[in-house]
Nucleic acid binder design. Structure first.
Length: 576
RNA sequence: GCCCCCGUAGUUCAAUGGAUAGAACAGCGGACUUCUAAGCCGUUAAUGUUGGUUCGAUUCCAACCAGGGGCACCA
């Protein structure tokens, strides 16, 4: 269509312009709309409607068979109505490509690295990590669907003051130290509680603060190879092991598979060296015994990279991490997803990195996710009022259980539905909106599985699958009839479903370009709505003509929905 | 104080500078009792304020108002 218009403009003697080709808000305005006439008319000083008419006339001289009608509307939009033949072809294409429909090659040959989730051993895996994981996984899969070669990476803080605090707390609470046979969740709970104990003591008591700092220093030395008290060593090893085990379980549940994990202890020293080297080149400055980067020179703020104890801070480790990443491969794009509170922090680090290595800095992109808010206020793993991810998920699962208790599911199916619907419910809440903004999590709303929700999408697919099963049992095969056979069906009127299905690859493309999974989410919700509406008004399996095509449409729908949900990493239950 | 982000129905979110601002929930009102009612159909309701740029602004710019985040050895 773009070519058609450009050609028409050329013939008519107008200059080529960059115009928008969009899907109109309403199906009444056709399938594609172009605003070329408005732009051309402005430049040529003519009436947009007249220009549009000229273009229309020119295009109609040789109308491709995929287009049934061209119309002028509003201030000078040129609307294109696609033909029945086009839709039949697109349904056929979806059936043929199946699981691959929507896979693009735009990013072919590009290597992309995604860092997300980033939970810290010794700390709670909380709902903020759930957000990061949900968005990061969607970003990764979008990149894959656009053809990129993707690797996933997770970064964890296994050194730093929070460990000192936790281990101090663990030692205080020695009597409650879990045994090897205890449940993993209890072990992790103990670690989390110890952190809170240590953190509060750090704030309240000068003595405790001194002890914690001492432990912290010992851990640094321990990781550098020197011996340490047995208590500290045991606490450290067990604590880290339990955390990592729990994280693995969580990733499996969420549908993420990391290609590698990097821990702070692996990058701290390298980062420190880079900062020291940078200091010699005057990238960093000394101030009050610490090594800082003066962000003010760039409209940012100053941050400490090496503290006055001589230890690298998170900032220096971040530098080390960046080099570590690019030591693996020269990524075309390295993407990092963190909470939005780290936005300004990251700008400073990236600016400092730019002074050390322009290439790495320019190939790195930082995205943020908002915070999940509750009536109780901001959650923070640094105070005590965190909402642990596993507790949060259990709550949703029990609600799903309540919802399905009247259904005659066996135990296996019940467990499957509980898990998949729970994941769908909260992931949808996160992925329906532009990432970066806070997500307001309202228990009753997210857990009411109606309307604009993950379960709504899952439900639509399972219903469609159920129809397909019925068709199979009745011996009906999905078939797109061609030519004259078509005319005999009841499907002469082109349905909104057909007009939605072929747009999926465009949604994948744009969502990938803009790192905007909500484009896919919105598309799927609209598609599911259109299907449900059609389903509600049409008896798909019946004796009337066109059954085979109606089944084909249903099948095409399930392909698109499944592919779309796959991008969002939302699983589809076998039944609901 | 300085910097960044945000402000759309009662509520939670959409809307690549375009047409009548789109959903869902809540509210009100229906239909079928044949493929799964977690569904379908109808209906009430919104761009914080004031300017500017533009043929056209929810979108871009300015000011103001309201909210959130960040600003030195935590991550």
């Amino acid at each position: 269509i773009r070519d058609l218009i450009n050609k028409a403009l050329q013939i008519l003697g107008y200059e080529q312009v960059d115009f928008a080709l969009t899907h109109p808000d309403s199906f009444e305005h056709g399938d594609y709309a172009a605003n070329a006439a408005l732009i051309v008319a402005k430049k040529a000083g003519k009436n947009p409607k007249e220009v549009a008419e000229q273009i229309k006339a020119e295009i109609e001289k040789q109308l491709p068979q995929e287009i049934s009608k061209v119309a002028i509307a509003g201030p000078g939009f040129i609307n294109f109505y696609l033909s029945e033949q086009f839709f039949k072809q697109s349904v056929q294409e979806i059936l043929e490509k199946g699981d691959n429909f929507g896979k693009l090659e735009k990013l072919k040959g590009k290597k992309m690295l995604f860092e997300y989730t980033d939970p810290n051993p010794f700390k709670v895996f909380h709902i903020g990590h759930l957000m990061s994981n949900t968005i990061g996984e969607a970003f990764s899969r979008l990149a894959e669907w656009n053809g990129a070669e993707v690797q996933r990476m997770c970064y964890g803080g296994d050194v730093g003051l929070h460990i000192g605090k936790t281990i101090w707390g663990m030692i205080q609470n020695k009597v409650a130290f879990p045994h090897d046979g205890d449940r993993l969740t209890d072990k992790v709970k103990f670690v989390g509680a110890s952190y809170v104990t240590g953190n509060n003591a750090y704030d309240d008591s000068e003595v405790a603060k001194g002890e914690i700092i001492a432990i912290n220093k010992k851990i640094f030395e321990y990781l550098a190879g020197s011996a340490v008290d047995e208590d500290i060593e045991v606490c450290y090893k067990k604590g880290k092991q339990w955390s990592v085990e729990l994280f693995q379980q969580m990733y499996q549940f969420l549908g993420t598979k990391f290609d590698f994990n990097i821990f702070e202890s692996e990058v701290a020293e390298a980062g420190k060296q880079k900062v020291i080297e940078g200091k010699e080149k005057n990238v960093f400055a000394e101030s009050d015994g610490a090594v800082v980067f003066k962000g003010e020179d760039y409209g940012l703020h100053t941050r400490v990279f090496i503290n006055s104890e001589g230890l690298p801070t998170y900032e220096a480790k971040e530098i080390g991490l960046a080099f570590k990443k690019f030591g693996i491969t020269d990524w075309n794009q390295s993407v990092v997803i963190t909470a939005s509170e780290q936005r300004d922090y990251y700008k400073v680090v990236l600016k400092a990195l730019e002074q050390i290595d322009v290439h790495i800095a320019e190939s790195t992109k930082h995205f943020t996710h908002g915070m999940m808010r509750f009536a109780s206020g901001k959650m923070s793993s640094r105070k005590g009022n965190v909402i642990a991810a596993d507790e949060f998920i259990e709550e949703i699962k029990s609600d799903v259980a309540e919802k399905i208790k009247d259904r005659a599911y066996d135990e296996v199916l019940t467990e499957e539905v509980k898990n998949k619907v729970a994941v769908g419910a909260f992931k949808y809440v996160i992925l329906r909106q532009a990432s970066g903004k806070d997500v307001v999590y309202d228990n009753t709303q997210a857990l009411s599985f109606e309307g604009d929700s993950g379960p709504y999408l899952q439900y639509a697919v399972t219903r469609a699958n159920s129809v397909l099963k019925k068709a199979t049992d009745a011996g009906i095969t999905a078939q797109v009839l061609s030519g004259e056979d078509n005319k005999q069906t009841e499907q002469d009127a082109i349905t909104e479903l057909e007009r939605m299905l072929y747009r999926f690859p465009e949604a994948v493309s744009r969502a990938g370009d803009e790192y905007a999974p909500q484009i896919v989410t919105t598309y799927l919700t609209e598609l599911a709505g259109v299907f449900n509406s059609w389903y509600g008004n049409t008896l798909i399996i019946s004796d009337t003509a066109g059954v085979a095509y109606r089944v084909a449409l249903t099948k095409a729908f399930t392909h698109v929905m499944q592919n779309g949900l796959n991008i969002l990493a939302i699983p589809v239950p076998s039944k609901m």
